[in-house]
Design a protein around this nucleic acid. Structure first.
Length: 513
RNA sequence: GGUCCGUUCGUCUAGGGGUUAGGACUUCAGAUUUUCAUUCUGGCAACAGGGGUUCGAUUCCCCUACGGACUACCA
């Protein structure tokens, strides 16, 4: 009984998709592609109260950016459309009614106050888990306790009601999870979950089973937070008569906070100083901004590679994977069982690796963009050269500008440390000759510049190590950076001359000392 | 509280009845370099605890501890 593999990612549009969600989507995608199956996205918007404008677009854009392709989705359509549960609303009631008719569900008329009262009562009676279940339902207002004609009357009068699942009192429910193996839960620990809400919408529990069945889903990969309700879902498949085509389940370990307490949440981004969302998000109500990996300058390939390794590994020493390689290497069996703490350092490391693998000319685009924003003109050739010099020392694309400002702007301040240690009259003598002769070079490049410097040093009976730091100081104002001769080549003879002259003037007190 | 899930270096993890318990990130030291970074070499660093089973347990079983999730007419 080999069915065509169909997996789905089913987020609800209640806010920005967080990286845990992206990882879930990624694993679904990897499995689908690995097995030649279909990747489906379904929007779970059965809670109208929690709808957040823009969230759906955010989900689409995030997945697109990450390179997770959808074969069927609300935006693309597909053979099982619609792919928004709100648009599928008319489909659910019949299944709920089917369950009522077969005796596996019932109508309940209890008000919110009555439910609250019941819970309070049970709590007072020291019941461990106050819930609407096989025992307590006998004391509530539902079609199990009310006379039949009373129920009909209430229904006919349009009174608000919900449909609840009639969970068996004593039954061992077994569930096979691809990651955890057999999980056993007793039905007495599950309450009579609401299937249809009083607003006519199904709850997640009903909707996801109905849709997964109708959409012929074969594998459900979702977060571990769903594990406790998975037995309930098994029950639903059974009562609906769909047990033989029930999908396989895989519950992913959670993404945890770096300090090891609880799952990674929205607020952690600000707290720890790294993004927890793929894209920047502005809360439509509060206007609060949350940073995103894309805006931070992460490359989608690095982001995906890093995410894939949060809870999964190929079992080899290889760490850098393209999406295609991930697809080939991915297996559910190699997903870990335990929660994974988020490691920002490692995330940065992945981005560095990807950055360094890029050709200089491509990296130059980041620099060019930063320059454009500041109205500084620069040729592609020059930007490419600078990028090549900088690539070993950047983590994020923004570093290209941050670390290379001195290529475009003369220093206004000088490192005090180097000035006091290395700036002296002998060095100044060398630089004075150096800057004057620089313009006379027939061939102007890093090599000839170095040659010139060496010649002058020889004349003064000095060694290169005695002046390099000071020269760097004069040209860049800094104490560290890439090869200085290359910098001087890129900056040009005239500009270098000006900078040295300026430095000699400004640093005169040090030379005198 | 109850139910369920989990626990190998600080972090991500490999491994699996007998191993010097391996790698990566971080960190430290050395080498190279005009500096810093890179690179290279090397170092520190782990099987939560207690019982079993076994000739032998980090690995299998149980208990404890700790961590986490869930416990809504939210997903």
């Amino acid at each position: 009984m080999e069915r065509e593999v169909r997996v789905r990612f089913a987020p609800s549009p209640t806010g920005p998709l967080h990286i845990g969600g992206v990882r879930t989507a990624l694993y679904n995608y990897l499995l689908a592609r690995k097995l030649g199956g279909t990747m489906i996205l379904r929007i779970e918007d059965t809670d109208q109260n929690r709808f957040v404008p823009g969230a759906e677009d955010y989900i689409r854009e995030s997945l697109e950016w990450a390179g997770i392709e959808l074969d069927e989705s609300p935006w693309k359509g597909g053979p099982y459309a619609p792919y928004r549960q709100s648009e599928r609303k008319p489909m659910y009631m019949q299944y709920a009614l089917q369950l009522v008719e077969s005796g596996h569900a019932y109508y309940a008329f209890d008000t919110a106050e009555e439910l609250e009262e019941m819970r309070e009562r049970l709590k007072a009676a020291k019941v461990a888990t106050p819930q609407y279940n096989a025992i307590t339902r006998a004391t509530m207002k539902n079609s199990l306790t009310l006379p039949e004609d009373e129920v009909k009357k209430r229904l006919a009068s349009g009174e608000a009601y919900v449909i609840r699942l009639k969970v068996p009192r004593k039954e061992e429910i077994r569930l096979k999870d691809m990651i955890r193996g057999w999980v056993m839960v007793h039905s007495s620990s599950i309450d009579d979950k609401v299937l249809m809400k009083s607003d006519g919408m199904p709850t997640y529990h009903l909707a996801n089973i109905v849709d997964d069945h109708l959409m012929k889903i074969t594998h459900v990969i979702r977060g571990e937070e769903w594990l406790p309700s998975a037995p309930l879902h098994v029950l639903l498949y059974r009562f609906l008569g769909w047990e033989d085509t029930m999908p396989e389940f895989a519950h992913l370990p959670l993404l945890l906070k770096p300090d090891g307490n609880g799952k990674l949440s929205k607020r952690d981004g600000d707290k720890f100083g790294f993004p927890v969302f793929p894209l920047e998000w502005t809360d439509p109500i509060t206007g609060d901004k949350s940073m995103g990996y894309r805006e931070k300058g992460f490359m989608p390939e690095a982001f995906v590679n890093f995410l894939a390794f949060l809870g999964w590994n190929p079992g080899t020493q290889q760490e850098l994977f393209t999406m295609q390689e991930l697809i080939e290497a991915f297996t559910v069996e190699r997903i870990g069982k335990s929660g994974t703490k988020f490691d920002w350092q490692k995330a940065r490391w992945f981005n560095e690796q990807y950055l360094r693998a890029k050709p200089d000319e491509e990296l130059a685009q980041y620099l060019l963009k930063a320059l454009e924003e500041r109205n500084i003109s620069c040729s592609l050739e020059k930007a490419t050269k600078i990028s090549g010099l900088m690539k070993e020392r950047v983590t994020l694309p923004s570093d290209f500008w941050n670390e290379a400002v001195y290529f475009f702007e003369a220093p206004t301040t000088y490192s005090e440390k180097v000035a006091s240690k290395k700036w002296n009259s002998q060095a100044v003598a060398v630089f004075t000759a150096f800057k004057d002769e620089l313009g006379g070079l027939t061939e102007y490049n890093a090599e000839s510049i170095k040659e010139l410097l060496n010649t002058i040093l020889e004349r003064n009976a000095m060694k290169i190590g005695q002046v390099m730091q000071a020269l760097r100081l004069a040209v860049t104002g800094l104490e560290a950076g890439p090869d200085l001769m290359q910098i001087i080549e890129i900056i040009g003879a005239a500009e270098t001359k000006t900078r040295i002259e300026h430095a000699i003037e400004k640093l005169a007190p040090y030379a005198a000392a």
